[in-house]
Amino acid sequence: MAFVTPFLLFLIVFQYIPIGMLVRNSFFDYTLLRPDDQKFVGLGQFERILADPSVTSTFGVTLLFALGVLVLVVPLGFLVAVFLNGRFPGRSIVRTIVFLPVVTSVAVTSTMWLFMLTKNGGLVNSAITGLGLQPVAFLTSIPWALISIIVMSAWQQIGFAAVLFLTGLQSVPDDVIEAARVDGASRARVIFSIILPLMSRTTLFVVITMTVFSLQAFAPAFLMTSGGPEDSTSLVVYAIYNAAFKLQDPGFASALAVAVMFIALVLSGIQSLFLRTKWSY
């Protein structure tokens, strides 16, 4: 216990106490400009969340976003890992390149993608119109805007997932694979029936980490789409930032944050249960 104490001390002082303050703030109505002028509203802020369809849709958008990122990152990250696990010239260079977006700050990657995806004169649309097709409003039309920020976020995280999967792959014993190959199993079968189940812990870690990251994503909505068009990319943390710093509504922002915490808790709980029962043996 003595070894855990310093960690706990800092955790209590710098995480639990502020989280406690956050929960407390969610029962009040006040502004940052007049922090002393607070009004207790009970569960009023939470009622506002449930009553306002534009706020509830924020949660829907965020879940869709998280789902989209998961659907792209997990399989693609795995495939890239399988690919990188093979032998070919320049392997370490390719690995470095895939990992580049992970080390780049999201402010920089968002700016890059903003200009790549912009409708007139963006890199992607220049290529599209070069083929004689009509340009696509990737960032300013529904549903493209949401798709675009999903793809951008997945692009940034694939390297991280791939490295995690790669380490998992390298710890799968060679003799297991050999035995399966001798039994006549195809390459794909080996991957899906032998390797994947052996990597359930990695998969769980990737899935939970990506879920939490996605639920907390902020910069793509802030820098690339400003939540638009018509709130179709209004991620919940962007809504929190807006409520707290732009709309002078920190009590409401706190209530939203408490709701995010709760959802993240439930989701990661379900994910662990599901993935564990399916793949443990």
Binding site: P18, I19, P35, Q216, V237, A264, L265
Partner: peptide, 24 residues
């Protein structure tokens, strides 16, 4: 249980914590 309680803080978005943490 302690480990679980510690992990919970991982679920709080940083942007939400800025206001109370700043005051604190």
């Amino acid at each position: 249980l302690l480990f679980g309680l510690i992990l919970v803080t991982f679920l709080v978005p940083m942007e939400a914590l800025v206001v109370p943490l700043y005051a604190w």
